[in-house]
Design a protein around this nucleic acid. Structure first.
Lengths: 350, 350
DNA sequence: ATGAAAGCGCTAACAT
DNA sequence: ATGTTAGCGCTTTCAT
């Protein structure tokens, strides 16, 4: 394993010269640079990452904090991870997976204090998240994926849930739907103050009022079974409903199955729009789900870029970037059946 | 940020003593150990990972090599990653995500030469994989997930595809199925010599012969659409078929939809067994998929443990660990309809 | 059982 | 434009 000293000797220069052609932090004459580069090539030289890190106080590694509990990652989270990894690599950085949830803050404490990582990407951010306070205290650069309750002064990148709900509702309204159900995350998520669940709930209510239509919100588990139960409840509460907005892609498939078995046609009788959905899962359904495609990879890349920018510029400014999910009309949304809706509405009134 | 020198001073000992209480590589009297530990606690001391790495020539980081191209990771791969990450953390190691496919070997070359990583986990191994040769040449410890053509002398952990196919076919045979289709990965995968595709193909043929039943193999894309096309072709070629084995979970959902639309009941008319499937996706289907559940997380953990063991013991021995997928009977498999199969079989003969 | 000191392979002043 | 050298914070001989 050749070291910098070997390269210097071979090129007939000092180690610092070699170091400077590597880092580019001071001018080197064309001639010597060439000699050094040649020597490196001949020796298959690669700088030792540890030595470089120790001397420069930077590792060129960023940590991705994510809770690794239970069911594992969904498609959106996975896309986020890969997006972040790619973006880091393109900038010459590495990405380390750190299984650190909102709970285990001593893990994070030691991680951050070890100086192994230059900064952190924080996934699955809770509305009040101890990791955030800790990182602030330790003065570790970080970027949130998601938002805390009080996002003031923090750098974060997130899905624009408000916009996404607005777009989804608008799509249904344009198709003539006047009674819409919103199948949200679980009651537990809502109770724990999970940001996406809370934000979409509020946005849904606001959208209903703005459009002057009626709706119902049913929280449920993020599974097909959860979706089945939720759509049943929603139809009991609002027999007139012709449109369904669903937060979770797993639940969305359950909803489709339940409607089919109830003898209802999608999108003939009921339209279903799935929020924050990956293309793979959308295409899994039959018909393929009309969905708000989550910008997973783009989010990951954006978060990484923001983090690297602050690392480079020592930029402490607040930075927010919100990416909406893009409406992708596939096979589960269509014009509302006026007749049926009216009939059911009449029945409901009695 | 307290350093080891600070701790030593505070505890009234030398730095080497502090180092030894940390590494435990030489006996320390109870009394001084306590003093050192106390000093560490008071100072919130955490060893500097870079310095430690430079001096000890080990980073306590393992790299996970995985191609990050295109569609992103499936549920099984994701489970693998999380399993590996968890296992590493439990052993005091970190895991770095390295987007390095079978193609980009210079990336790997420099990665391995930088001495940032103590060893490698190699995912998505091709039957002939340049990364393997390279790692061997560079004498970097590594463990494969999957197998190369000639696995002699290599440490690897993989799904036991042969056993999995055997179990799946046996399940169908027990239910009375006598004509079975195997929907494999894409023709391109087969052509490129992708291990799982080749192995399962061979195992399927062998199982057919052993049970004395007939079958047909149709390769197809790993999508719902691909599954639809494949089941159509399979039924054209073997109208009598009552059992379907499918390699890819996405295709499996397409198959269910296509059969339903063709007026066939699952599992009444046709049984479907999905191989190497994640529980989440299995539960997404209606009815839920009878499937061979892929041991994703277990594989990741096993691979990590094997790697860490060789790191610890400088163990160069060949090691193979094959984990079968476990049969999980859900809603898509049932007894074969003798009558219908016989009728179709007769029709076919004419 | 403990200490002193020589590196590990780099970076970044400080020189010239 | 280049060279000299003092660290970076640890591990690990070599002493005692």
């Amino acid at each position: 394993m050749a070291t910098m000293t070997d390269v210097a000797r071979r090129a007939g220069v000092s180690v610092s010269t070699v170091s400077y052609v590597l880092t580019g932090t001071r001018p080197i004459s064309e001639a010597t640079r060439d000699r050094v580069l040649a020597a490196m090539a001949e020796l298959d030289y690669q700088p030792n990452a540890m030595a470089r890190g120790l001397a420069s106080r930077k590792s060129n590694i960023v940590g991705l904090l994510l809770p690794l509990t239970g069911r594992g990652l969904g498609a959106t989270e996975t896309a986020f991870v890969t997006g972040a990894t790619e973006a880091a690599r393109e900038a010459g950085y590495h990405l380390m997976l750190c299984p650190v949830g909102a709970a285990d803050s001593d893990e994070l404490q030691s991680l951050a204090t070890q100086r192994l990582l230059d900064g952190f990407l924080v996934m699955e951010v809770q509305l009040t998240d101890r990791r955030v306070e800790l990182l602030q205290k330790l003065e570790s650069p970080f970027v949130l994926i998601g938002r805390t309750e009080d996002g003031a002064g923090l750098a974060c990148v997130d899905i624009d849930f408000e916009q996404t709900v607005d777009d989804a509702v608008a799509h249904l309204v344009e198709l003539g739907h006047e009674t819409i159900a919103y199948i949200n995350h679980s009651p537990a998520s809502l109770a724990s103050g999970y940001g996406p669940a809370k934000r979409t709930e509020a946005a849904f209510q606001a959208a209903l009022e703005r459009h002057g239509i009626t709706g119902v919100m049913v929280p449920t588990e993020d599974t097909a079974t959860g979706g089945r139960a939720a759509i049943q409840r929603a139809r009991e509460e609002r027999p007139a409903l012709t449109g369904v907005l669903v937060m979770n892609e797993n639940a969305a498939l359950g909803i489709l199955a339940e409607l089919r078995e109830a003898g209802l046609d999608v999108p003939g009788d009921v339209s279903v729009v799935s929020m924050v959905t990956s293309e793979v899962v959308a295409d899994l359904a039959s018909p393929a789900l009309t969905a708000m495609t989550s910008p997973g990879a783009a989010l990951g890349a954006a978060a990484t870029r923001v983090l690297l920018k602050r690392l480079a510029e020592d930029d402490g400014s607040t930075y927010q970037e919100l990416l909406p999910c893009a409406l992708e009309v596939r096979g589960t949304s269509g014009r509302a059946k006026k007749g049926k809706a009216a009939r059911s509405a009449r029945a409901e009134r009695q």
